[in-house]
Amino acid sequence: MNDGQKLDSGITVLIWLVSIALVVLPLSMLWDVVREGLPHLSFNFIVDQPLDAGRSGGVGSLLISTFWILGVCLLTTIPIGLGCALYLSEFVIPHSQSEKLLGFSLDVLAGVPSIVFGLFGYAVFAIQLGLGFSILSGGLSLACMVLPLFIRTAEQALRTCPKGYRQAAIALNISHAGFISRILLPSASGGIAVAMIISIGRALAETAVLIFTAGYVTRMPGSVMDSGRSLSVHIYDLSMNVPGGQSNAAATALILVMMIVLINVLARYLSRRWQHVE
């Protein structure tokens, strides 16, 4: 072997090691969560209210709060985000000043640390608009954080629509709205579902945005104006702030991981079915 070959094989080994580490790291994290959390996971844990600062009891009310926060977030993100993505892909002239400006501001927003969105949401939604610590404030703040990510991913999906579809639509004198709703959106639905899944993943994992907006209250929420603790905030509090909360933190983390996997599977299934129906 000459020096060049030695270098080549050395680099090959290095790349393999890096890729193995990339697989092992998330697996070992998952293993840790499963090992610590699974013994504490039960049906009662999923439906019961947290007791003794979360050391005992379950996460029932927090699951509901999390779903509501996610619901508010998606109800805001999807119409605004899809509209913005459609505007970017359909109406903005490529390489124009306005496209550059829009793209730049989206990229800046996507890079803002989540705690900034948390403080923004607290100042604007909770204090200025008087929504207080509530699921609504939390969901809206979360939507602000998730929007740039959703818009960018959905825009990519919309841009993958083959040119031929568009030409055929024009040739058949199909209106722009008809083209968008009947051809563009269905053909991009897979990609839009991916954008949703990524957004949901970000939203479910978020702690910094929610702790000052949706808040810390573990009571079962009665309306979106109530404060409600999300699963992620609960995990953070149990592992950092509550002595003896470690095992329930792991069990909650396990629920969160399972939720993300479930939503992932469901979204993929629905988008595939929708594609067939249309």
Binding site: L75, P79, S175, A177, G178, S181
Partner: peptide, 12 residues
């Protein structure tokens, strides 16, 4: 064109 066929997100 009109918005006679409502895109799914409006419905949602």
């Amino acid at each position: 064109s009109t918005w006679g066929i409502r895109p799914f997100f409006i419905r949602h």
